[in-house]
Design a protein around this nucleic acid. Structure first.
Lengths: 213, 213
DNA sequence: CGGTACGTTGTGGTC
DNA sequence: GACCACAGCGTACCG
């Protein structure tokens, strides 16, 4: 018989098997797993390796407990845990909800580039600098408007790859009807050889900017 | 004084604060957190909400335990946990390493399209169907070669968005030197309005294919 | 090892 | 709610 704390956070180490149906379908063989239920009604089922849980679910709206089985359900998804043996069941009280405060994010690089615009793009003649400028093909990290030229800047916090270049190309395309001359840059600490070549083929530019200058 | 099981999997619920340095930098305020150490030398630190851990690390090569502090390190990263109080420390034995077997993946859709090629692309005249065809601009999900035409197919398992269209455009570009006529399709269960319009502007096509037909 | 793309991505933000 | 993009993405795979 399974008894779970009501509406609280708890962890359960148990011998069980798991099935998931919803966005995809999965099965997990009988074995020992760590089941983590948090008070935001999220569920994770962890195996003995890897950071990512074997199964998981958010916004659970229904929990059905029967002898040997727990079913978690949202509107469109369901996880069924068939429990053979419960090894540890612990209620976790006063579990902190603080989040990590991150530094060295993309946003930080954007701020840095805007603050130092003149040194990164000297004599650009830009009279207006816009962040997250919306286009029909997505938002541009930094758009610099000069009378005759637009500067389109896509910023990445780490190695730039092919997909980042295509992202920039798409923004350039979105602006083509608006202005005659566009200078487009991808900015970040590093770029892959392939991405570099692709960039050059399209007359786009790379500007190396690191967190610590 | 902290005593941890050597080289095993364990979980610790503790009052602590955490700092991370490496790819980025983060701090986590003093509070109760669940620390999960697995035998593949991975570490997760969970707060009382969200599926994703507050901090994490893989491939740990060094653990330094001092009174009130545990330091986990890889070559380039470090997590420092300053422990105020240990609430639960449990060693987890025989923790299963089975992985979930997934269905309804992109690969499954690819297989389905190849198997039913003639019904999806009638009279295509394709004499060769290749999976994960490598180009200088990335691998193509399905490439169908007819004498005069290449069929380029990009498959998605869920809603198709702008970035998926740019991905397809990039593959088409990579093949341009090889063949005169290219027909490019993005295939999946649904597509966003924006992506649809962008697709049409570039004379690409969308083909709706679902898991259950 | 770098490079590329998938993922039940999760999560946040904006429209 | 749709849709877009970041993330210490993690993870797998292929070169």
């Amino acid at each position: 018989m399974i008894e779970l704390p009501e509406l609280k956070s708890w962890i359960l180490y148990a011998t069980c098997e798991v099935t998931y149906t919803g966005r995809a379908t999965s099965t997990l063989e009988l074995g020992n797993y760590l089941i983590v239920y948090k008070k935001d009604h999220s569920l994770s089922i962890h195996g003995g390796t890897l950071i990512i849980p074997r199964n998981y679910m958010s916004n659970i709206i229904k929990i059905i407990i029967t002898p040997e089985t727990i079913i978690f359900a949202t509107k469109r998804e369901q996880i069924t845990i068939k429990i053979t043996m419960m090894i540890h069941l612990i209620e976790l009280n006063d579990w902190s909800e603080y989040k990590t405060t991150m530094r060295r994010t993309e946003k930080e690089l954007v701020t840095k580039i805007i603050a130092g615009w003149e040194s990164y793009f000297p004599q650009s003649g830009v009279v207006e600098l816009l962040q997250e400028y919306p286009t029909t093909l997505g938002p541009i990290d930094i758009l610099g408007k000069a009378p005759e030229v637009y500067y389109v800047i896509e910023v990445k916090r780490k190695l730039i790859s092919l997909k980042d270049v295509t992202q920039l190309l798409r923004y350039v395309e979105a602006l083509l009807p608006e202005v005659k001359t566009i200078r487009a840059y991808i900015v970040g600490p590093a770029i892959s050889a392939n991405a570099r070549k692709y960039l050059n083929n399209h007359s786009l530019d790379y500007l190396k900017v690191d967190f610590d200058d």
